[in-house]
């Protein structure tokens, strides 16, 4: 097949870019185990308040797991429980969150923690809090009249 020399160059360039980008995504998913925050773990939204671990929102130390702490959040119109929480610097934490009523967002501003909370589903994200500071949690899914008033805070302290 006849192909112009320059045409061959940009086809190789484009194809290799595609291969590199897809490899990075593949390594992230299959080797590092990154996945969407909600992986089909379910909970009855009407009895969230009584079920473990959502009966005690907040930070809990756990043993024998890949992470040291579990940070449990329950969202409802128009607040998060707990409204403020302290996390020790350098702690490996699994953030576990769900909602009691409608769809809420869970975005810890300035970090990669950004999940959608759907009624009936549990969203999780495991990370190491390795930068001290105060982080604002905001709802980024429009949930009703008080949507803009919905926030919480994580303080990463030494």
């Amino acid at each position: 097949m006849h192909m112009h020399k320059l045409e061959r160059i940009w086809l190789i360039f484009g194809t290799s870019c595609l291969v590199i980008f897809l490899t990075v995504i593949g390594v992230s998913a299959f080797y590092l185990g990154n996945k969407p925050p909600s992986c089909l773990t379910t909970v009855n939204p009407e009895t969230v308040g009584q079920e473990k671990p959502f009966n005690e929102p907040g930070l809990h130390k756990v043993d024998g797991k890949d992470w040291e702490y579990e940070l449990v959040f329950v969202a409802s119109t128009f607040s998060y429980s707990p409204a403020q929480v302290e996390v020790p610097l350098g702690a490996k934490v699994k953030v576990i969150a769900t909602t009691k009523d409608v769809i809420h967002g869970f975005e810890v501003a300035g970090t990669n923690i950004n999940m959608m909370l759907e009624p009936g589903y549990i969203s999780e994200y495991t990370t190491t809090f390795n930068k001290a500071g105060e982080y604002l949690i905001v709802c980024n899914e429009y949930c009703g009249a008080g949507h803009h008033l919905m926030y919480s805070k994580i303080e990463v302290v030494k």
Binding site: L6, W10, G14
Partner: peptide, 12 residues
């Protein structure tokens, strides 16, 4: 096709 090559690389 030099111009095309340049614009492809510019965008790339």
């Amino acid at each position: 096709l030099k111009g095309t090559l340049a614009s492809v690389f510019f965008l790339g």
